[in-house]
C-alpha cells in the first residue's frame, strides 16, 4: 500500500455493500474543463465509487475512435495537464470519490514525474494509470515519485499477461488493478469475451489488490455480468459518447446522471 488508501477504501466499501465498484471514465477537457467538472459532479451524485479522468494525448495508441475524438476535442480546447490538476482541486471540495488520472506517459514525462506527483497529490488526485508505462519502465522514476507523494500507481493487466507479469504488477501497483477485458483498444463492444469470468477469478486469487474490469463495457447488463466476478466495472467510451452526443442539450446533466445511475445500479450483486 503506497497511496493514502482512498482507492482501497472505496473498493472495500463497495464490497461491504455486496456490489462492485462503479468506475466511470471521462476525458478531461472534452469539450471544456468546466463541462468536465459538471459531469464529474453528476457522476459522483449518481454513485460513482472511483472516477477516472483521462489526460488527452495527441497519439492515443490504446484508444478506439470515441476516446480519440474526445482527446482531439480536449486538445483543441487547449486542455493542459496543469489545468486538469486545478480542476481536480476545485471539484475535490464537493466530490469525495477518489480520482485516478488515466494518461499516456509523455505528458507526465514532459511535466516531470516528481513535479507531477507533488502537484497531483496537492490537488487531491489519488492515483495514476499510464497506459503505456508498464511496471518495468515505471520503476526508475515514476514509482518512487508517486510513492513519495502517497499516490497509488495503478497498472493494467491483460488476457496476454503471463504469471510473471501478474507478479510484477502485484509488487509495483496499489489501489487496484485494471484488467483489460480483451486484446484491443478502448470502445464499446456488443458482448463480453467468453473466458472473462474465469480469467478474472484466477487473477483475484493471485492478487491481494481489487480487480476492476474495463475495455468494452457499455450497458447495465455488461456491468452486471462483470460485477458478479470482479471488484469493479469501468465504463468509458459509452459515457464519453453519450456526453458528446447530448452536448448541446439543456438537460445534458440530468440525462447524463440518469445514464450513470443505471450503470451504477447494475453493480449490485444478488
Amino acid at each position: 500500500m503506497s497511496g493514502r488508501g482512498a482507492l482501497a477504501a472505496a473498493f472495500a466499501a463497495a464490497r461491504r455493500e455486496d456490489r462492485a465498484a462503479f468506475v466511470p471514465f471521462l476525458m478531461a477537457g472534452d469539450p471544456t474543463l468546466e463541462r468536465t467538472g459538471e459531469l464529474v459532479g453528476a457522476l459522483a451524485g449518481a454513485g460513482a465509487d472511483v472516477i477516472e479522468l483521462g489526460v488527452p494525448f495527441s497519439d492515443p495508441i490504446a484508444d478506439g475512435p470515441v476516446n480519440q475524438a474526445a482527446a482531439e476535442r480536449a486538445l483543441a480546447a487547449g486542455t493542459r495537464l496543469a489545468g486538469i490538476l486545478e480542476l481536480v482541486s476545485r471539484i475535490r471540495r464537493r466530490v469525495e470519490a477518489p480520482i485516478v488520472l488515466f494518461s499516456y506517459f509523455n505528458p507526465i514525462l514532459r511535466y516531470g514525474p516528481a513535479r507531477f506527483a507533488e502537484h497531483a497529490s496537492a490537488s487531491g488526485v489519488d492515483g495514476l494509470l499510464c497506459v503505456d508505462l508498464p511496471p518495468e519502465e515505471a520503476a526508475a522514476e515514476v514509482l518512487p515519485a508517486l510513492r513519495a507523494q502517497r499516490l497509488d500507481p495503478v497498472f493494467l493487466l491483460a488476457p496476454t499477461s503471463t504469471r510473471e507479469r501478474v507478479r510484477a504488477v502485484a509488487r509495483a501497483g496499489s489501489g487496484f488493478v485494471y484488467y483489460v477485458s480483451r486484446t484491443g483498444v478502448t470502445g464499446e463492444r456488443a458482448a463480453l469475451p467468453a473466458g472473462l469470468a474465469s480469467e478474472v477469478r484466477a487473477l483475484r486469487r493471485a492478487l491481494d489488490l481489487p480487480v476492476a474490469v474495463g475495455f468494452g463495457l457499455s450497458t447495465p447488463e455488461q456491468v452486471a455480468a462483470v460485477a458478479r466476478v470482479a471488484d469493479g466495472a469501468v465504463v468509458g467510451s459509452a459515457l464519453v459518447r453519450f456526453a458528446a452526443e447530448h452536448a448541446g442539450e439543456p438537460d445534458l446533466l440530468p440525462l447524463f446522471a440518469r445514464r450513470a445511475a443505471r450503470l451504477a445500479a447494475a453493480t449490485r450483486r444478488g
Binding site: 490504446a62 497506459v131 508498464p134 496476454t160 499477461s161 507479469r165 484491443g184
Partner: peptide, 9 residues
C-alpha cells in the same frame, strides 16, 4: 518498452 500491457508478453 513503453507499451500497453497487452503487448508486453
Amino acid at each position: 518498452r513503453y507499451v500497453p500491457e497487452t503487448l508486453m508478453a
